[in-house]
């Protein structure tokens, strides 16, 4: 095909060039500018240098928010992915009824977080909530769950709910990875008399590490930006529990708008996320096998 004809490519990708200009580069530059100004959406922005950053770094609330979201992200993703690995292998057995299970495990991922928190709020409720009733039968509890005053208990309860809601999604990806494994390897292991547990740890798990790595990178950076679940679960419980994005929400869309500080916190969070992603990429070689 002729050179000129290939230029039709530019025509087709042009909407994305607009996307990058309008919805990526412009907001990034604006946000970088705002981070160094004081701006409340009404009066014009005023240059204040590094003041926003120093205010963000000095506030205890910021570090609490970072602690909360980091604990949440690592707890959520480690449970989510290890559970998904087991489920993916179990769901991959060749029985007809399993397709029903596959659907059941996937259904919670389809539901809106707003509705999920309404339901789980009643399950978690300390005033005769259903989970406390059930745990009471086996002599446990009562727990306060998300109504607790202790941050770790709130996060643990949130993680349980989010694993319930999200594990089906990771399982779907890992199931595709398990299905793509060659049958020969498994048959060879069978002939050698390897136990199911040994096959899982020595063959399946190493071979699906690329997918695990992908889920880990996207999952952690997604969880570090979580907002909805903490906003919904802790509103109305009387305890303020902030993650980074709900702090940004409060600064920007709370009683008054502090665009400068919200931008500064946004960039601080961005830098941390970038570091985590880079670190994961760096240690990728140590445990991810691409040579299968």
């Amino acid at each position: 095909m002729t050179r000129r004809h290939q230029n039709w490519g530019w025509f087709f990708v042009s909407p994305y060039i607009l996307h990058i200009l309008i919805f990526t580069l412009t907001p990034l530059l604006i946000s970088l500018y705002f981070a160094f100004t004081r701006y409340d959406l009404v009066n014009p922005p005023r240059w204040v240098g590094l003041q926003n950053f120093s205010r963000v770094i000095k506030a205890d609330q910021t570090w609490e928010a970072f602690r909360n979201v980091w604990v949440y992200a690592f707890m959520l993703e480690s449970i989510n992915i290890s559970l998904a690995c087991v489920l993916a292998v179990l769901l991959n057995q060749k029985i007809k009824t399993l397709s029903l299970f596959r659907v059941i495990y996937y259904i919670p991922t389809l539901t809106p977080m707003t509705a999920v928190t309404i339901v789980w709020g009643r399950l978690y409720s300390p005033k005769g909530g259903v989970l406390n009733t059930i745990l009471g039968f086996i002599g446990l509890g009562p727990f306060m769950f998300t109504y607790s005053e202790h941050w770790l208990e709130i996060i643990a309860a949130t993680v349980i709910m989010c694993v319930w809601k999200g594990v089906g999604g990771s399982t779907l990806y890992l199931m595709a990875a398990v299905q793509a494994l060659s049958e020969d390897v498994m048959e060879a292991a069978d002939i050698d008399g390897a136990s199911p547990t040994r096959k899982f740890f020595k063959i399946t798990l190493p071979l699906i590490t690329p997918t695990i790595f992908y889920l880990l990178i996207t999952g952690i950076s997604g969880a570090l930006q979580t907002f909805e679940v903490f906003y919904l679960l802790t509103q109305g419980t009387g305890h303020d529990m902030y993650v980074v994005n709900s702090l940004i929400y409060k600064m920007m869309w709370g009683a008054s708008s502090d665009v400068g500080q919200a931008s500064a916190l946004g960039w601080t969070s961005f830098i941390f996320i970038a570091i985590v992603t880079y670190a994961q990429k760096k240690y990728e070689k140590k445990w991810v096998h691409y040579d299968a």
């Binding site: 990526t24 990034l28 946000s31 930006q225 920007m252 665009v259 931008s263 969070s269 961005f270």
Partner: peptide
Amino acid sequence: LPGTVMQVP
């Protein structure tokens, strides 16, 4: 690119 930094602008 995390959405965190984009929402405000």
